[in-house]
């Protein structure tokens, strides 16, 4: 079972502690009176190199077509305009794609939060017939690469008549083994006394879960929610094969098809489209970055 040992080294549960953020002056040994200037210099150069493509993308989305074709290229727009964006939403229907992306991401996230926490709780705290079988099956599939299930999944969805529908876009992703793993690990860390206390008070089993346990799962739910939303928003291959008419495109699909189709020569539009794909997720990231990074640090998945 290398499956369930894999994520172990980083610790038992996504407990609120192991955050790589706010650490106060530990490990400052020897040569480090507040850091070394040359290290700041190296890191700054690296930072510029890493985020330069983004800066250039955003600046470029305000440029006109002529300026984008200039050699050598410019950094700051000579005459900034929102033309690319207005065209994106008026002519190219990006509003629709945006809505599709949001709908799919929200449904997938909700499904994962609800279903994975339910099973995660049952596996962590309850005893029932078949528990071991379920656990083994779910953990066993954690390591199976997506490419293995891709073809039969497509056949299944096609046979169900769900190709080119919105449910076809989200149904296969409503639950994930990873979500169960995450929730189970977190709930294992909660005191089991909570259960007994609830039972003594005469609460039903389901009520104990929804009213006592679930409210305590905030940190794990946040981590799972953010990672799921991100994954769904950026998901590309599945919607590319399932969404076949324009009304069903998600943002990445639309952008990919435009960037290789007849619009591929309209650089301004493409850069504006890329910005529209990136900005929402960037905003979510900036708001929840602490939670995000904790999630990555404890699970290693994105």
């Amino acid at each position: 079972m290398s499956v369930d040992t894999a994520p172990r080294p980083t610790g038992p549960a996504p407990a609120p502690k192991a955050s790589p953020t706010g650490r106060t002056g530990s490990g400052m040994v020897g040569s480090s009176q507040g850091g070394r200037w040359w290290l700041y210099l190296v890191l700054t150069v690296a930072l510029v190199a890493v985020i330069a493509p983004f800066v250039w993308m955003v600046l470029g989305s305000f440029k006109g077509e002529g300026e984008l074709r200039q050699v050598p290229p410019t950094w700051l727009p000579e005459s900034a305009s929102l033309d690319n964006y207005t065209q994106l939403f008026s002519k190219l229907n990006f509003g629709q794609y945006f809505t599709n992306s949001i709908v799919v991401a929200v449904v997938v996230t909700a499904g994962n939060l609800i279903f994975c926490s339910m099973l995660g709780y049952a596996l962590a705290m309850l005893d029932f017939r078949g528990k071991k079988v379920i656990f083994t099956a779910v953990m066993g599939t954690l390591m199976i690469p997506g490419v293995v299930t891709f073809v039969p999944l497509f056949v299944l969805v096609a046979n169900a008549g769900l190709i080119d529908t919105i449910p076809g876009l989200f149904l296969p992703f409503l639950v994930s083994p990873f979500g169960v793993f995450l929730m189970r690990q977190f709930i294992l860390g909660l005191p089991k006394d909570l259960l007994d206390a609830g039972r003594v008070d005469g609460a039903g089993e389901l009520r104990i879960f929804f009213r006592i346990i679930l409210p305590l799962c905030g940190p794990a739910l946040a981590t799972l929610g953010i990672l799921t939303f991100l994954g769904s928003w950026n998901n590309f291959l599945w919607p590319l094969v399932v969404a076949q008419s324009e009304d069903r495109y998600t943002l990445p699909v639309a952008l990919a098809l435009y960037s290789t189709g007849q619009n591929s020569t309209n650089y301004g539009l493409l850069l504006a489209g890329a910005t529209v794909v990136i900005i929402p997720i960037l905003v979510v990231f900036l708001i929840f970055q602490k939670r995000f990074i904790e999630g990555i640090a404890t699970t290693g998945l994105k």
């Binding site: 950026n234 943002l251 794909v277 990136i278």
Partner: peptide, 10 residues
């Protein structure tokens, strides 16, 4: 955290 498609454009 950025979409590969957007990354590809850039």
């Amino acid at each position: 955290i950025t979409s590969i498609v957007a990354v590809a454009v850039v």
